[in-house]
């Protein structure tokens, strides 16, 4: 997902306070920034919201890669609007993280020096225009699976950010599917692009949900805190069950020989992605991992003079205002 493998931080707080806090969460209360919270809850949320924010920002790059080459004016406008939305999501999420006592600059530095991650999916390249369809259809589709339940997460600012984000993500997914429809029903070259995009992005999309729950040691505490709402396998199954009929409708083939409807479980059986590839990506060995961080580092470095100048100008304005009073 946009936040993967989030390690729950240990908590060493007063057990009575912790118990009272857990009772509030169990009762469905929202935790607000000024409320007492265990240190582990705060740190885990910073990590999770920060990683989600970074994913939105790094996620601009693979789609930004095609804005200048969008094949019609309308597609260009839609893609610009979508990438702008993602920057906006990044902004809400950084603001939500800031309520937990970390600054946006600190979070950015942690992304750039590798202390924080972004979703593995954005370390993959976008190679044809069909990838703009597949990213919307599969990647945003997978993201929605996780984000819809997060609207009910226990931390108020995160839940509220997620409400806004979900509205826009469902529009993104629809436009992605629309691009795929045009491609899948288009010329032979377009169909080839559409199938190729599905072949390349299917398993990376399945990886977005993270490793199997049986291998995930961090889920239990996060689920008790209601900052993780569903298990990884459960969401992955739901995604596959939703996506297979859509692929059939498009006339595309999911690249999995083992894909088969299982009447007994009421869902599809499917192959797991190559988890060693997933762990390689997390270690920074994704096909575009180096380029993505290089691009963000360059934006950060090249933009330093602009940020400094804006601060300096604002300080001069404040000084003038005080002098005038």
């Amino acid at each position: 997902m946009y936040a993967q493998m989030i390690k729950s931080e240990a908590t060493q707080d007063d057990p009575e306070k912790v118990a009272a806090f857990q009772a509030r969460i169990d009762a469905g209360d929202k935790i607000e920034p000024k409320d007492w919270m265990p240190e582990g809850y705060r740190k885990t949320l910073i990590r999770q919201i920060g990683q989600h924010a970074h994913s939105e920002i790094v996620g601009q790059l693979p789609e930004g890669n095609w804005i200048t080459r969008a094949p019609t004016l309308e597609r260009k406008a839609i893609l610009l609007a979508k990438v702008q939305d993602e920057a906006g999501h990044g902004l809400y999420l950084y603001c939500a993280a800031e309520t937990l006592g970390v600054s946006r600059d600190e979070l950015t530095e942690m992304l750039l020096d590798g202390r924080m991650k972004y979703s593995s999916i954005f370390a993959y390249p976008t190679l044809t225009w069909a990838d703009m369809g597949a990213v919307g259809w599969l990647v945003d589709g997978a993201a929605i699976m996780n984000q819809v339940p997060l609207q009910r997460t226990s931390y108020g600012p995160y839940a509220r950010a997620m409400v806004r984000i979900c509205k826009e993500e469902s529009f993104h997914q629809r436009q992605g599917f629309d691009v795929m429809m045009k491609m899948a029903n288009g010329t032979a070259a377009q169909k080839r692009m559409a199938q190729d995009a599905l072949n390349r992005l299917w398993y990376p999309s399945l990886m977005m949900f993270g490793p199997s729950d049986s291998d995930s040691v961090h889920s239990e505490q996060s689920m008790a805190w209601k900052i993780k709402m569903n298990g990884n396998d459960e969401l992955r199954q739901k995604f596959v069950d939703q996506t297979v009929p859509q692929a059939e409708y498009l006339g595309l083939t999911i690249p999995d020989e083992n894909l088969k409807w299982n009447d007994a479980k009421g869902g599809y059986d499917f192959s797991q992605p190559d988890w060693s590839e997933f762990f390689d990506v997390l270690k920074g060995n994704g096909p575009c991992s180096v380029e993505r961080i290089e691009a963000r580092q360059k934006a950060w470095d090249d933009g330093a003079w602009v940020r400094e100048a804006r601060m300096a100008h604002a300080a001069k304005k404040r000084a003038q205002k005080i002098a005038a009073e």
Binding site: Q60, G64, I67, K76, A87, V306, R307
Partner: peptide, 17 residues
């Protein structure tokens, strides 16, 4: 649109887009 994802701050990126 060449700036998308490369702006000096998130707010600038959004404004350029």
């Amino acid at each position: 649109s060449e700036w998308c994802g490369h702006g000096p701050a998130l707010e600038e990126d959004i404004a350029l887009a």
